[in-house]
């Protein structure tokens, strides 16, 4: 037992302490968080626009929205990331992490649009009619009547999408960003030890997502509470 413990602490030292390797992981965490946060914002914005397209009266907009969702869902996110990074933004000088966040946002937008669309469609159509019958236009009815009610239905699914998105960012190493996953991988190559860096990577993701889940649960509970009247 003592021998095992000594071995463990030795590998732990080699993987995380020696040559300040924990700093790689720390900066990896900050990259993952930065990319995820910006991507989630972009994803929600794109998602709203695409959802509006899909719900529009105009056929052309519905076609555009349909193609967008179809293409994004039909191709791997790694491929999308690489196309956006190496093709679309090839000659644009932006920080790597911003381009990566755009790629994940574009991907997430397709899923978010479906979540928003389902949430809006879950609101009785009488609500839209009541708003319109008072003389509000479609936009005013959406923003004051339909969307405030839809948000409570949308929120849990949106949280889930956020969590999926964070894990999805583990592929940013493909475009040369050092996130948590890449940092763990780098330590593995440098130390020739697989177990400790990879399990460490898993633990870091797990803890990050756990913290996030708890925060989101709180917000959801607050939303429900405001609804329980």
């Amino acid at each position: 037992m003592a021998q095992w413990a000594a071995g463990f602490s030795d590998t732990f030292y080699k993987c995380f302490i020696k040559e300040d390797r924990y700093k790689l992981l720390l900066s990896g965490i900050s990259v993952t968080i930065k990319v995820s946060l910006l991507a989630v914002v972009i994803g929600i914005l794109i998602g709203m626009v695409i959802a509006m397209c899909n719900l529009s009266r105009h056929k052309l907009l519905r076609i555009v929205g349909g193609i967008y969702t179809d293409v994004i869902r039909g191709t791997p996110s790694v491929t999308q990331l690489m196309i956006i990074y190496f093709v679309i933004f090839a000659s644009v000088h932006l920080d790597k992490w911003i381009i990566a966040a755009i790629a994940f946002g574009v991907n997430s937008g397709a899923y978010v649009s479906e979540i928003i669309r389902a949430g809006i469609m879950s609101i009785d159509k009488g609500q839209m009619e009541a708003g319109r019958s008072l003389g509000l236009n479609a936009f005013q009815t959406m923003s004051h009547i339909v969307i405030p009610q839809a948000i409570k239905n949308i929120f849990p699914a949106l949280c889930n999408e956020f969590i999926v998105l964070i894990k999805e960012t583990a592929i940013v190493g493909y475009v040369g960003l050092m996130d948590i996953q890449k940092a763990g991988d780098f330590i593995k190559s440098a130390t020739f030890i697989a177990f400790m860096p990879l399990v460490g990577t898993a633990v870091i993701y797990y803890v990050l997502i756990k913290i996030l889940t708890l925060i989101l649960k709180r917000i959801e509970a607050a939303l429900r509470k405001a609804d329980a009247r």
């Binding site: 009488g126 019958s133 009547i145």
Partner: peptide
């Protein structure tokens, strides 16, 4: 929208706005 402002409509299913108080339902439009 301008035409509809001249015409009030009452529905079978009421269609009140459940997220707003009674007063807010009335004053919104």
């Amino acid at each position: 929208n301008r035409i509809r402002q001249k015409m009030g409509m009452v529905f079978q299913q009421f269609n009140l706005f459940p997220h707003l108080t009674i007063m807010e339902n009335i004053t919104l439009a």
